[in-house]
C-alpha cells in the first residue's frame, strides 16, 4: 500500500451509496411525469427560432439537476441580420431557469 493509500482508509462504497441516494430520489420523483426541463428547453428554443434564425452550433444548453434545485441555462448567440454573417458583434440572449423541486 502506498503512503497515500494509508490516508485513504475509508473505501469508495460510501460515496457510491451517497450518489445513488441523490440520483434515485430525483429519478423517482420524476417517474411517470414528463421531464419538465426537457420540455422547457425544446419550447424555448422553438420560440426563439420562430423570430430569429438560430445557428444550432451557437446554442449552449446546460442542465444541473440537484436534489432540491435544478438549473437550466440556455445561451443563444444571435447574429445581427443587418451586419451580415461576418459581423463580429453578436447579441447574446441568455436565459436561466431555476426549478425548485416541489417536494
Amino acid at each position: 500500500m502506498s503512503v497515500l493509500g494509508l490516508f485513504r482508509l475509508r473505501g469508495t462504497a460510501p460515496v457510491a451509496r451517497e450518489r445513488l441516494h441523490i440520483l434515485l430520489s430525483h429519478e423517482r420523483s420524476n417517474r411517470g411525469r414528463p421531464d419538465l426541463l426537457a420540455i422547457l428547453r425544446d419550447e424555448i428554443l422553438a420560440v426563439v427560432a420562430k423570430h430569429v434564425s438560430v445557428d444550432h452550433d451557437q446554442v449552449h444548453v446546460t442542465m444541473d439537476r440537484g436534489q432540491i434545485v435544478s438549473r437550466l441555462e440556455i445561451n443563444v448567440e444571435l447574429q445581427h441580420p443587418a451586419n451580415g454573417p461576418i459581423a463580429a458583434e453578436r447579441e447574446k440572449a441568455a436565459m436561466t431557469i431555476v426549478h425548485q423541486a416541489s417536494r
Binding site: 475509508r10 473505501g11 469508495t12 462504497a13 460510501p14 457510491a16 451509496r17
Partner: peptide, 8 residues
C-alpha cells in the same frame, strides 16, 4: 468498504 454492502 470497497463495495456496496447488502444493507446499502
Amino acid at each position: 468498504g470497497e463495495m456496496l454492502n447488502i444493507k446499502d
